[in-house]
Amino acid sequence: MTLRFIRPETVREAMEVLHEHKDNSKIVAGATDVMVQRRSEKPVEEKPLLLVDITGISELSYVNFQNGIVRIGAMITHRDIARSAVIHDVAPFFADACLSVGSPQIRTRGTIGGNIVNASPAADSLPPLTALSARLRLISRRGSRDVALCDFFKGPYKTIIEPDEILKEVYFRAPEPSSRCAFLKLGRRESLAIARLSVAALIDVDDSGKISKAAIAPGACLPMPARIAPAEEALVGKIPDEEVVNSASQEVGEEMVRVSGVRWSTEYKKPVACALTKRAIWKALGVDVD
């Protein structure tokens, strides 16, 4: 096994390296997933591999907010997002989600780009980004392309990114200032816990008290990130009361079973998905419930 590394300092340089070594390279950012994955690999099966470390590319580290669009460079860490005034202002549930990732140590290193490309169904950053209808920009020597976050995933840990491509940024339109959001995560413990379930809710209520927009995106219960249209339809146009919120929440549990099938955990996860969604919706609406 020959393992080599390279640390390009510019995006252009990284694209050249990936173009030249596309058959045997792997991008490394915060390395919090790569290092764990490498540990469990069987050395005999390893091919020569080139680790392309992109953490030295300063042009991929930015949070911009211009013309209503928030753009986050792929090398921004979970710690950066959790501390970003812009993110706290426009999408606080995204900051909450990033603050729930792993531990302070993991958040220091782990990047938003890595969290997206690793494509774990339990990734904490993905439900809020899904609710925000985020889009991604992928770049390579061949050019650049933009894709909707939801179209980026093919399945658990599988994406459409090509071996010569780099995720440059994730971007989304800032929600209306009147909108409210919440992210809730349920893990086996408070810290260092992979989400058993999570829910992001983004809701706007009009002057008459009716819900005008709703985006509900659960995590860790679907093979890949998705909004739950039936749950959103159950909310939009209604004045939120217990019945409305309960029926919307029920849809999340139903959708989980429709998409993921009945599993050993369904008996637990289905009611919990409904309950967590209900709490997330009420939290977004500013109502405390237990």
Binding site: T32, V36, L51, D53, Q105, R109
Partner: peptide, 14 residues
């Protein structure tokens, strides 16, 4: 900032 030194590739310490 705190990091897990078991997860940092040595080359990133440069």
């Amino acid at each position: 900032a705190p990091v897990n030194s078991c997860l940092v590739p040595a080359f990133q310490a440069e």
